[in-house]
Computed example of a mutant assay.
Amino acid sequence: MNTTDIFEGMTGRDLATYDLCTEAENTYGLTQRDAHETITALLQDLITDEPALILDRQPVRTITAPGIDNNHWLTISDETANHIRGALAAIYSDNA
């Protein structure tokens, strides 16, 4: 199974770059923050009904708060990523 990683980070902090976010930025002319927040919201909607869509969750340790996991890398299937791409297209198709 092919997978896609999504950064789950606290708002107001620097965001890690990830392929789906960069794709949304480039396709729809979004800022990194807007792309990330939209992707995160769409994923949250999907996992509300199906939590198993998150295949893996890896904590990101920070130097400023050692031992506290505020950020994570989430692994989803490419099928789930394609659902998010479709929703992004529906929302931002006028921006493309």
Rank of each mutant, 00 (worst) to 15 (best):
A81R: 04
T64P: 00
L53H: 07
D78S: 15
L74S: 04
E23H: 12
H83E: 15
N70E: 11
T27R: 11
Q58K: 14
N71S: 07
T31G: 10
Q44F: 00
D34E: 15
L55E: 15
I84H: 10
D49N: 08
E50S: 09
I47L: 05
I47K: 08
H36F: 00
L42Y: 05
H83M: 12
E79P: 01
T31R: 04
T38V: 06
L55K: 10
A81G: 12
Q58D: 15
D78R: 14
I63S: 13
T22G: 02
I63E: 15
L20M: 06
L30T: 10
T62C: 03
D69F: 07
Q44A: 05
V60H: 06
D49G: 11
N70V: 05
D45F: 01
L53N: 10
G67Q: 09
N26Q: 15
D49Q: 07
G29S: 08
R57L: 02
D34R: 06
A35L: 04
G67F: 11
V60E: 15
L43W: 02
Y28I: 06
L55D: 15
R61P: 04
W73D: 12
H72D: 12
T62Q: 13
I68R: 13
I68S: 13
T48F: 08
D49A: 07
D45S: 09
A24G: 11
I39G: 05
L20T: 00
T22K: 10
V60S: 09
E50D: 13
L30I: 07
S77C: 01
I54W: 12
A52L: 03
N71G: 06
Q32F: 11
I76D: 07
L74C: 08
G67I: 09
H83Q: 14
A35G: 08
S77I: 04
V60T: 13
A52F: 02
H72N: 10
L43E: 03
H36E: 08
L55C: 06
L30G: 11
D56G: 07
S77K: 02
L30D: 14
A81V: 08
T40K: 10
D34N: 11
W73K: 01
A81P: 00
E23S: 11
L53W: 05
T80S: 09
L30V: 06
E50M: 04
I54C: 06
A65H: 13
D34C: 02
N71P: 01
V60R: 14
L42M: 07
P66V: 12
R33S: 09
E25S: 04
R57N: 06
A41Q: 11
T38P: 01
T75I: 02
R61V: 14
L42G: 00
P59M: 08
A52K: 05
H72G: 03
A65L: 09
T38C: 08
D78T: 15
A52Q: 07
P59R: 11
T75K: 06
T27F: 01
E23W: 15
I39P: 01
H36D: 10
C21W: 02
Q44C: 00
P66M: 07
P59D: 15
E25V: 12
T40G: 02
I39V: 06
D78N: 15
A35C: 03
E79D: 14
N26Y: 11
T75A: 03
D56P: 00
R33Y: 07
I39F: 02
A65Q: 13
L74R: 03
L20H: 03
D69C: 08
A35N: 08
T75P: 00
R61M: 15
L55S: 09
R57G: 04
